[in-house]
Structures are given as structure tokens and as C-alpha cells.
């Protein structure tokens, strides 16, 4: 049996890859951002169990707190990576006067 979660994760990865394969610089950054989200969602799904948030003293089975702590860090790092990639794309687009990465002459040795 395939859980819905697995299909969602796989779909997000596939969409991210498709966006990154697109030749547009901004689209590539969007793809990177989707990829970061896909990874985060993969990790939270791994720890999916229980029915209450992990608080001490909550009634019920708590969710896995460790994966949540990992993702908390990963979300912020994803922001840093995306912001940097976007800045890079911006500078390249301005200097090369094109949004298509195949036109970026400065990347070619």
C-alpha cells in the first residue's frame, strides 16, 4: 500500500526537478525552494505518528519531536539558500541581459 504522504513527497520532488530543469533562472530558484519544502515534508512524514503536538503533559500520543526540531533548522537554512540563489540569479540576469541560463556566457569557461 502506498500512503498518500509518500505520493505527495514524490510529486514534490518531481515538480521541483521539472522546475529546476527549466532554463529560466527565476524558475530554477523556485524549483530549489520547492525542493527544500519537499525535503522538509519528507522528514516530517517520517516522524508522522501520534495525535497531539509534542508538549509535556499533553493528553494522547505525542508526535515525534526530534524530526520537528530538525526541520525547524532546515526551514531557516532553506530560506538562506533560496535568498542567496535568488540574489545570484538577479545579478546574472542584470549582467547578462537574459533570464535564460543557457545564455549566461559568464558561466562558460
Amino acid at each position: 500500500m502506498v500512503s498518500l504522504l509518500v505520493l505527495v513527497i514524490a510529486a514534490l520532488f518531481a515538480i521541483a526537478a521539472y522546475a529546476i530543469r527549466h532554463g529560466n533562472a527565476i524558475r530554477m530558484v523556485i524549483g530549489l525552494s520547492i525542493l527544500a519544502n519537499a525535503v522538509n515534508f519528507l522528514i516530517i512524514s517520517v516522524g508522522f505518528k501520534g495525535d497531539v503536538a509534542p508538549f509535556v503533559g499533553a493528553a494522547g500520543t505525542p508526535a515525534d519531536p526530534l524530526v520537528q526540531a530538525l526541520i525547524l533548522t532546515a526551514i531557516v537554512i532553506g530560506l538562506g539558500v533560496t535568498a542567496f540563489a535568488l540574489g545570484l540569479a538577479y545579478v546574472l540576469i542584470r549582467e547578462e541581459e537574459s533570464t535564460e541560463v543557457e545564455d549566461f556566457r559568464r558561466l562558460k569557461g
Partner: peptide
């Protein structure tokens, strides 16, 4: 590109599905 995306869809499903079921969360 669509073909690649489809391949990734199938591949990730194949990798994640068994590992999701067998994840050991005892560390938590």
C-alpha cells in the same frame, strides 16, 4: 523534462515508501 520528473516520482516513491514504514523513532 517530463520524463525525468516521472522517473523521479517513481524513484522517490520506491525509496521512501519502505523506509517510511520501517522508521525507528525510538531515539525520540
Amino acid at each position: 523534462d517530463l520524463l525525468l520528473a516521472l522517473g523521479i516520482l517513481i524513484g522517490i516513491t520506491a525509496v521512501v515508501n519502505p523506509s517510511l514504514a520501517t522508521f525507528d523513532s525510538s531515539v525520540a
